[in-house]
């Protein structure tokens, strides 16, 4: 029956008569969060957690993953998720759990041997809960990042029609395999949809070009050529031109232009359009 006894000790530790430990806990946590969570909300969250914790201990829960702790896990998950979404740091999330240790510290001053043993055991449980909170926090953050990456993927690859038979893709941001794949598919589909024979890939907004990015670009251009369209790469900054030469990347017979305007001029010439400036025209 040693287990029962320790459970009783744990519950005893958390429910000292005449003391509102939950209130002390809330004070401790709200101090560390610097008032960024409303006191009323914090009070509700932590009291729920506290009550659930006492309940679970009463039922003989011994660690985070035991069955009796399922309610605590649910509450902690919600708390960690909220913290992650509101932009709190992992420390600030975990402190919500660990602060309870500090609240219980006074017990140690003049506690009996049983109480101290119970405190140490409870410490272990709290550590488990804290780690669980951080784990959930990280998971939520990862989900957020994944969702944002997906949004970015959709946002940043428009195909625009510049002229009859001339389309352009202004690329912005770093290119990786996933993005290039999307760009490639969109560009090729746009060629079919608009019946364009000239495509311009503008990399003005691409901060750096390495061998991998160049490889991706080349693939896209070869694929467009297979379908019967000509690709021009434009928007190559002096910096990137130097990098390309330093890396020894060969663009072979692919036409590259410094600016989108030059590329458009070429595309128009290739599709048989003549641009004539009228004298005295308003600029």
């Amino acid at each position: 029956m040693a287990k029962r006894d320790s459970a009783a000790d744990l519950v005893g530790l958390l429910t000292i008569e005449g003391q509102d430990l939950a209130a002390a806990w809330v004070r401790e946590v709200s101090g560390s969060l610097g008032g960024r969570v409303g006191t009323a909300e914090l009070d509700r969250e932590l009291r729920e957690l506290y009550d659930a914790l006492v309940d679970a201990l009463r039922q003989g829960a011994t660690d985070v993953h035991s069955e009796q702790m399922s309610e605590i896990r649910a509450l902690l998950t919600e708390l960690s998720r909220n913290r992650a979404r509101q932009g709190f740091s992992p420390t600030e999330t975990a402190i919500s759990v660990f602060a309870l240790k500090r609240v219980l510290e006074p017990v140690l001053q003049d506690g009996t041997a049983d109480q101290i043993r119970a405190y140490l055991q409870f410490n272990g449980i709290l550590d488990g809960l804290g780690l669980f909170a951080i784990e959930t926090y990280t998971q939520t953050r990862d989900e957020l990042i994944a969702a944002q990456a997906e949004q970015l993927l959709e946002l940043s690859t428009p195909v625009v029609r510049l002229w009859d038979g001339v389309i352009a893709v202004p690329l912005v941001g770093t290119l990786d395999s996933a993005r290039t794949q999307v760009v490639m598919e969109k560009l090729l589909q746009a060629l079919v949809d608009t019946g364009s024979e000239q495509a311009i890939i503008d990399i003005t907004g691409v901060p750096a070009v390495d061998t991998q990015v160049a490889q991706h670009l080349l693939k896209t251009i070869v694929a467009a050529r297979l379908m019967g369209a000509e690709c021009t790469v434009s928007g190559i900054s002096p910096q990137i031109a130097q990098t390309i030469v330093a890396l020894g990347i060969e663009f072979d017979d692919i036409v590259t232009k410094a600016s989108l305007a030059d590329a458009l001029k070429l595309a128009l010439r290739r599709s048989g359009v003549d641009l004539v400036a009228h004298e005295g025209a308003q600029r």
């Binding site: 598919e185 090729l188 079919v192 364009s196 693939k219 694929a223 050529r225 297979l226 019967g228 369209a229």
Partner: peptide
């Protein structure tokens, strides 16, 4: 003529660039 985008991508991934073949939409 008329190569589909998916086909073009596949050929590029296979490393076949059909050098010497003219293409049209």
């Amino acid at each position: 003529v008329g190569m589909r985008p998916a086909v073009a991508i596949t050929l590029v991934e296979l490393g076949l660039s059909l050098g010497g073949v003219s293409t049209a939409l």
